[in-house]
Design a protein around this nucleic acid. Structure first.
Lengths: 350, 350
DNA sequence: CTGAAAGCGCTTACAG
DNA sequence: CTGAAAGCGCTTACAG
């Protein structure tokens, strides 16, 4: 049937009396081409409602290689990112996409530096068509390696932590501000007008400050009696010290919001709490520890930032970029509220 | 580089000294082929880790036409399903997929019957390669039309409501049982040991009974003082009558769970409630009415069943089925908890 | 600045 | 039961 017929590059070429190669050059803005020809092609493409056939495109261009570098101190978190990344590649496998995954052990910071550099070199040597990068901690020390990536013309997607790169195509992360607001709103259901404690890393860490700002802004809407912020600077001893202080406060807290992965460090103490007497507890992410606390009724909810989806989305986006799609350069993954009754759906199986 | 090379059907053919056509027949279980040849091909494919190149496959087979029939009395809900369906098609457009969408006005039941039959005929006449179907109400009257679909060999995906069809490939729906559990768990945070009312359609409707069973099962874990079920049989006058009775109950209710779309009918009354005095309210889905109630603090949460995602997933699944992927025949979309602070993320923009 | 030709890996008639 | 040939719509050298 006629209606099944889509416009192809041949149709455009025929209409203008030029070759398909010229059409290709006009559409992809590549090689030398006269401005008038280009203009005519683009107009005609628009007019004939041309949409490139990605099957043909991907078939011709043959295998696409995407490199991935993950380096993160929180093992469970890193593992979920990796699972998401692998799931994306598994979906893309039939489309002739190959991958090059480097999971770097996060031991001493110095060790890691060498390995990050080596991994970046490997991506370039293997002539990857694109890269997905997740690095923890400061990245100033990698400027030389990043420059190599840029010079090799390899487009990059960052996950979780933003890195300012010239060839950055998209940054995928959780919406930490929204997560903080959700925690506050959730606690406000049962703790309106009461005393709240927040146990957090440090206000100078981007994601923690986002959580905190979200929480405080939301608190203005339906005020608590007070909101006290306890920082532990990601020091596991301080985590437990501050937690103890919160639990033994003379004026007791009715609600407690724990940001970041510090639940892992605080787990032993938290697991001994009794569900009915302890403050209403809202945690962050979905580590094994949080699952246990939810099942026991010690935590009433956790704000899940879906690292699986972050990893999966990053790979997907960079692939679609390689296909020529125009997409936004920033993508926020909405946090989700996990209770006991829905947590088995996450992390996603598919 | 050698490592970039994937096994193709030619590689298998060459290895076995047969033609690529025979390999194709073996892999797709089509046409006449000797059992030994077939066995050898399948073994070799496995051994050489053959994965079909879907780009080449889709390119050769040219345009795929997917038909969609939606018929539902709740306009906002139907609209979201449609948006999801269109989003899926928009993603698939570069892959040479065309669509045939029939949104049927849900007026009198009899009217709708004719239109459903006409739409099914249209799908067959246009030689659609697959269909996505969402029908409300009883479907016994359509057996003749369904048979035509079956005889035409058109694979079908159902959304929201299950229909028993021989050519059903996948059914996509929300997990209503989980939604009910989530509502109970959410209310248990602030209403443990207190009196709860559930306003629901009818226990004989599948989705309502799922919500209810989930709620009651979850209640066993952390018991409420009592849980009373009020049925309104989807009669808008009864909705308001029962709601009034709940709100004016001599022994007041501290929590209220409203299943299904009855919030739309109950909206006028609900919107007049004062946030602090009314029972803690948990609603279902994310209609304009729910958004308003969340913003005003009248509802504390709503359990979102993501019709957008249901529609989108259904189209995606049936397409992947056409590509030859083996996928589960049932897909439950996990419900999500919407508060004021995260509702702007839904329905998904992308 | 432009074009002719080959080929990516499949599937679909058609012939035997 | 099996195979030779054409072609889906692009992109990539190569030649001019």
């Amino acid at each position: 049937l006629e209606q099944n017929k889509r416009t192809t590059m041949y149709d455009i070429a025929e209409k203008l009396g030029i070759s398909v190669v010229t059409v290709h050059r006009a559409l992809h803005n590549t090689g030398r081409i006269s401005p008038e020809t280009k203009k005519k092609v683009l107009e005609t493409a628009e007019e004939m409602n041309f949409q490139i056939n990605r099957n043909a495109q991907a078939l011709r261009r043959s295998a696409v290689r995407i490199g991935v570098i993950l380096c993160c101190p929180i093992e469970q978190f890193c593992h979920e990112i990796e699972r998401g990344v692998r799931a994306a590649f598994s979906d893309l496998e039939p489309y002739n996409v190959v991958h090059d995954i480097h999971i770097l052990p996060y031991t001493k910071a110095e060790n890691c530096q060498d390995e990050v550099r080596a991994a970046i070199d490997a991506l370039i040597d293997n002539s990857c068509n694109a890269a997905v990068v997740f690095l923890s901690g400061p990245t100033d020390c990698f400027t030389d390696s990043f420059e190599k990536l840029e010079n090799a013309g390899i487009p990059v997607a960052t996950v979780v932590n933003y890195i300012p790169l010239k060839n950055l195509v998209v940054h995928v992360s959780a919406d930490g501000y929204c997560a903080g607001r959700m925690a506050a709103e959730l606690l406000s259901i049962s703790c309106s007008g009461q005393r709240i404690a927040i146990l957090t890393g440090s206000n100078s860490t981007y994601i923690h400050s986002q959580n905190l700002n979200g929480f405080l802004d939301e608190s203005k809407k339906s005020p608590f009696g007070s909101v006290d912020v306890w920082e532990h600077y990601d020091d596991s001893r301080l985590v437990n010290e501050k937690l103890e202080a919160i639990l033994n406060s003379e004026e007791p807290y009715q609600g407690l919001y724990i940001t970041s992965a510090s639940v892992i460090n605080a787990f032993e103490r938290l697991s001994k709490l009794s569900p009915n007497k302890a403050p209403k507890l809202v945690t962050t992410d979905l580590f094994e520890e949080n699952r246990y606390l939810l099942k026991k009724g010690i935590a009433c909810a956790t704000i899940f930032q879906d690292p699986y989806k972050q990893g999966k989305t990053a790979v997907n986006r960079i692939y679609r970029h390689l296909c020529g799609e125009q997409l936004p350069d920033r993508l926020l993954i909405p946090p989700q509220i996990m209770l006991c009754s829905n947590m088995d759906y996450y992390p996603a199986a598919e």
